[in-house]
């Protein structure tokens, strides 16, 4: 016996679905199976109007185990993580958290990470912050540093080597 999605010839990825549901449980989120497709999430999705993200469809595809389809799609990277879907779901499902899981899967699977995520990651790995302290220009075109403003030195990891060692270990692990 088998189930096939005839548009893609894809089959339900039962194991992967279980992995995602396990992850959701670990993070204390409801699993997707309880969704009854009221689409309240999509009605209020901040990313839907601009970028056509359909959270209820993400949940439906996960329910059916059609996961690769999503992991391979750019659509999962359109979420603004406004958390309205999670906040208002009548079945306590959190499409936003499912999207985090799918994006994590895409990264772990070696998919191209879009935009500046790679440089943000690299910055955090090397100095512990998403960027180093900037000189900022005021309205009257004066450039100021933290020092100029009398702000204390930036708080960052004191022993970068140790910090990096810790991060590198995790970077290859999953929730």
């Amino acid at each position: 016996m088998s189930i096939t999605d005839l548009t893609s010839m894809g089959e339900p990825q039962v194991e992967l679905k279980k992995e995602i549901n396990d992850r959701l449980s670990k993070l204390q989120d409801e699993v997707s199976d309880y969704c009854y497709q009221c689409a309240k999430c999509t009605s209020g999705c901040e990313a839907h109007k601009l970028l056509e993200l359909e959270p209820h469809k993400i949940v439906a595809l996960l329910k059916q185990g059609l996961i690769d389809e999503m992991v391979n799609s750019d659509i999962i990277w359109t979420c603004m993580s406004c958390f309205k879907c999670r906040e208002r779901c009548p079945q306590k499902i959190a499409p936003v958290e499912i999207l985090f899981a799918l994006k994590n899967l895409a990264v772990a699977g070696g998919k191209q990470v879009p935009g500046k995520y790679t440089s943000v990651l690299q910055s955090v790995l090397s100095i512990g912050l998403i960027q180093d302290a900037q000189s900022v220009t005021t309205k009257d075109m004066k450039t100021k540093t933290r020092d100029d403003l009398g702000l204390p030195p930036l708080s960052k990891p004191d022993d970068p080597a140790k910090f990096q060692a810790g991060l590198m270990k995790i970077a290859v692990e999953k929730v």
């Binding site: 993580s81 994006k103 943000v120 912050l129 708080s155 960052k156 810790g166």
Partner: peptide, 27 residues
Amino acid sequence: VDIAGFSCCGEPLKSVNQLLTLYLSAR
């Protein structure tokens, strides 16, 4: 009170690897 040694909270990297976010926040 200013404390030395803090790092990013990890939230901007939640899409990349949420374990990293949890680790950085816990740290």
